[in-house]
Simulated scan of single mutants.
Amino acid sequence: MRASFTKMHGLGNDFVVLDARGGALPPLHAGTVRALADRQTGIGCDQLLLLEPSQVADLKVRIFNADGSEVAACGNAMRAVALRVADDGLQRVTMETGAGLIAAEADGAEFRVDMGVPRTEWDTIPLAYPLDTLALPVGWDGLEKPTCVNVGNPHVVFFVPDCDAVPLARLGPRIEADPLFPERINVNVATVVDRARIRLRVWERGAGLTRACGTGACATAVAAMRRGLVEREVEVALPGGTLRIGWGADGRISMAGPAAESYRGSFDWGDYL
């Protein structure tokens, strides 16, 4: 069978979006995800998004990394989905995800997403054993004493003088798979520019280096706020562009930024089994 898709991105973090709200698609196996995500022989993407009907929200969003693993949340994906369903006339959308209900709405030319309440307890990251998540007493080749935050996805955040100087392509996979993180982890290296701005690079669990990571921006902002390095509203500059992150008095994180549609197409499902 032929299946339609939409190629989208949020600050260069790119997605293949499959819409199964109008009818079921064949089972989505990890091998199919990997084949579709391949940038040489497939469509190419950091994550694949599957839209399905929901009984508790406007729609359900399942998120698969390029390696075929399924994850609970993706901040940039939520903005992309909000743009995608704007075609249906929805200016505000609620999405059922593995991390719970997430709401997004149009904010001028951008989209604002309520990313919920961050978790910082060691067993909600999770870590393999109890440690202080504000400053873990661990290190990898000069990256030391990181902060851990779970915002639907687990993140470890290192604050460094120059995030561009860190060999993240080498250290990222090593830290991601460290036994300290039983569910693997997203690796963030951040430089605080001033109390209103952070520079950030991210190694994403299951996807590798990406141009932007919405949950990474949220986790890094919360980590910097917990350490008293920035104010409660901050801009996070990633290689693909800038997101605006706020941590409200109610404990909830808001993320605002753009999303874009690249193109639409179709493929033969049998070619990617």
Rank of each mutant, 00 (worst) to 15 (best):
M1C: 03
R2E: 14
S4I: 01
S4C: 11
G12H: 02
V17Y: 08
D19Q: 03
A20Y: 01
G44N: 05
G44C: 05
A57V: 10
S69N: 12
S69P: 03
M78N: 13
R79L: 13
L83V: 11
R84A: 11
D87I: 02
D87T: 14
D87C: 07
G89Y: 10
E96T: 02
G98E: 02
I102H: 09
D107H: 14
G108L: 13
F111S: 05
R112L: 01
V113R: 13
P118K: 10
P118S: 04
W122D: 04
W122Q: 01
D123R: 14
T124M: 06
L127M: 07
A128P: 12
P130S: 09
L131T: 01
L136I: 00
P137S: 07
V138R: 10
W140L: 03
W140Q: 06
D141F: 02
G142P: 04
L143F: 06
K145I: 00
K145D: 08
C148L: 05
V151Y: 06
V151A: 14
P154Q: 08
H155V: 10
V156T: 14
V157T: 15
F158W: 04
V166R: 04
A169S: 14
R170A: 12
I185K: 13
N188P: 03
A196Q: 14
G206R: 06
A207Q: 01
G208T: 09
T210L: 10
G216P: 00
C218S: 09
C218I: 06
V222D: 00
A223P: 00
A223S: 05
M225L: 07
R227P: 03
G228E: 09
R232T: 10
E233L: 02
V234T: 11
E235Q: 12
E235P: 00
E235V: 05
A237G: 00
L238W: 02
G240A: 08
G241N: 02
G248Q: 12
A249D: 14
G251M: 05
S262I: 15
G265V: 08
F267Y: 14
F267T: 09
W269S: 08
L273H: 08
